[in-house]
């Protein structure tokens, strides 16, 4: 291994690239699935936190709604109020003690779980804000044609709230790429773990972590660009929408 810093970096890359690649692969796997699962969970959690009782609800329904509201609030506050690294330790080591059948089949499985429930808490807060920012007129119009509050949420409010949240949700994904590094404490072989292994081989720390930094930067930069591009695609300017309309009409005529 060369003595110079950059020589060492280059040496690590060409010699240990399979190790780094394995790390990159797992980092992407965990952050991507974690974001997708977290987002899916948040679609339920955010409306739960916003459940409102009306004067028409029976007493029982009012109580149920209140309990749901409290539970979802506790969920979000606990997950946002404790570090993921601590959650990972607790969840990895204690779940098997609740019941032996519950123990994790692999650290990665536990890692995805931890990232998912964390992301759910953060994205549900993003969504909650977006839902509250939707013009109440949308809800009133939906209710006035007879939709239930649940239908209104599913077909009218949530789709708009999700669309407005896309940049913030993308941002959560980018954060997850970086934050999965804490899963090293439960021995998930993500990128940080790879860097640590490589650093240990020749007792040369900086080089390995510089490689990791470059790889993280590459992933976050690419993710940011892709998300930006996706966001633009999802929000076509008016002119484009009009062409689409003409096209569709044409298709119908044919």
């Amino acid at each position: 291994m060369p003595d110079s810093l950059w020589g060492g970096v280059w040496y690590d890359i060409i010699t240990y690239w399979p190790l780094f690649l394995e790390g990159i692969k797992n980092t992407l796997l965990i952050s991507l699935t974690g974001t997708v699962i977290g987002f899916t969970l948040s679609l339920v959690i955010a409306p739960m936190r916003l459940l409102k009782s009306t004067s028409r609800d029976s007493l029982l329904l009012k109580i149920v709604k209140k309990i749901v509201r409290i539970l979802s609030t506790i969920y979000v506050e606990v997950l946002r109020g404790t570090p993921m690294i601590v959650q990972a330790m607790i969840i990895y080591y204690t779940i098997g003690r609740i019941h032996p059948a519950l123990s994790w089949s692999s650290p990665i499985q536990c890692g995805i779980f931890v990232v998912s429930i964390n992301t759910a808490a953060y994205i549900s807060e993003i969504l909650r804000g977006s839902i509250q920012a939707i013009d109440p007129g949308q809800t009133e119009a939906a209710r006035s044609i007879g939709m239930t509050s649940t239908q209104t949420m599913i077909y009218v409010v949530l789709p708009q709230a999700i669309k407005n949240s896309i940049p913030a949700i993308g941002n959560e994904f980018v954060i997850n790429i970086k934050d999965t590094s804490v899963l090293m404490v439960i021995a998930v072989t993500e990128l940080f773990f790879s860097a640590r292994s490589v650093a240990g081989i020749h007792y040369r720390t900086e080089e390995a972590y510089i490689v990791a930094a470059i790889a993280y930067l590459f992933m976050t930069f690419t993710a940011t660009r892709v998300l930006y591009w996706l966001g633009k695609k999802l929000d076509p300017p008016v002119a484009k929408a009009k062409t689409k309309k003409k096209l569709k009409k044409l298709v119908r005529r044919v």
């Binding site: 119009a141 939906a142 209710r143 006035s144 044609i145 007879g146 239930t148 009218v156 708009q160």
Partner: peptide
């Protein structure tokens, strides 16, 4: 009165708002 099927009856009462409130999505 409580207990009426409000959603069903609302379909029979169309409402038009000053600010349109079309579903934006």
């Amino acid at each position: 009165e409580p207990g009426v099927n409000l959603n069903k009856l609302r379909t029979k009462m169309g409402m038009v708002f000053q600010s349109f409130n079309l579903f934006n999505n």
